[in-house]
């Protein structure tokens, strides 16, 4: 199941009385770090949940394409890793115990697990903290542990919901460095964030508000085309253009 892209067409989803997703179309290509950037309520989480099959669209479609062919969701699902905003890690279990637990849950063969575990602990620099319970980790380390658990299965698609929220600037930069490494391995990565400045760190940006895409493109080209210096300004302009 190599190098899948996700195609989303005219997607709509209502949650209660709120039109959470209001007509979104996009093609998320593999090997690219896609950023869903927008404030609270923009539709970031709902979009990720729709991609993951946790929610069904009211209208439109989500398709996984590999080699020009539509792939069955059941085949793709095991290759998708999802890191929700509120992570359900176990405060009493140590970093090491989390890895053991998720390896068992995902039925990862022992030799592969040993290799993966060493690689991930090295990559996240969590090696010295292996025996620390999750409940005593700092915000940044906690997020890294969550990311590590989701990477154990060697996913092809990585969906991350606000991985850097509440994390200090140093841990934030470390998390982004980790994501760049994953992208180099050809993964399709989708990161949702409310931090406008993080748009610049993505390969392709989707500026979201009220369930719609306000602007999309490669960050540098997007800023140049709109003649603005920062994504804050771009957001303000698009918002006033739409009379929101």
């Amino acid at each position: 199941m190599k190098h899948c892209s996700i195609e989303v067409q005219s997607l709509k989803k209502k949650l209660g009385s709120n039109q959470a997703i209001d007509g979104i179309s996009a093609v998320f290509a593999p090997g690219v770090l896609h950023g869903l950037i927008g404030p609270e309520g923009a539709g970031k989480t709902t979009l990720l949940r729709l991609l993951l099959g946790l929610l069904r669209p009211d209208e439109g479609s989500v398709q996984f394409i590999s080699g020009g062919q539509v792939v069955d969701f059941g085949t793709v699902r095991p290759t998708i890793a999802y890191m929700p905003q509120q992570q359900s890690l176990y405060p009493d279990l140590s970093v090491s115990e989390h890895l053991d637990f998720f390896a068992a849950l995902y039925e990862i063969p022992a030799d592969l697990y040993r290799e993966k575990r060493t690689e991930l602990l090295h990559l996240t620099r969590l090696q010295p903290f292996q025996d620390r319970p999750a409940g005593q980790l700092s915000g940044g380390m906690y997020k890294k542990l969550g990311l590590m658990c989701s990477l154990l299965r060697s996913p092809e698609i990585l969906l991350l919901d606000e991985p850097t929220n509440g994390v200090d600037p140093i841990s934030r930069r470390e998390l982004w460095t980790l994501l760049y490494r994953m992208r180099e391995q050809g993964l399709l990565i989708l990161v949702a964030t409310a931090y406008m400045d993080e748009a610049e760190r993505c390969g392709e940006v989707y500026l979201l508000n009220a369930g719609r895409i306000l602007a999309q493109g490669e960050p540098k080209q997007l800023l140049e085309a709109e003649k603005v210096a920062r994504f804050d300004e771009l957001f303000l302009r698009k918002e006033s253009d739409l009379g929101l």
């Binding site: 609270e40 409310a194 300004e233």
Partner: peptide, 10 residues
């Protein structure tokens, strides 16, 4: 973190 998650205008 009073303004995390709000629009730039807000």
């Amino acid at each position: 973190e009073p303004t995390s998650g709000v629009t730039p205008g807000a």
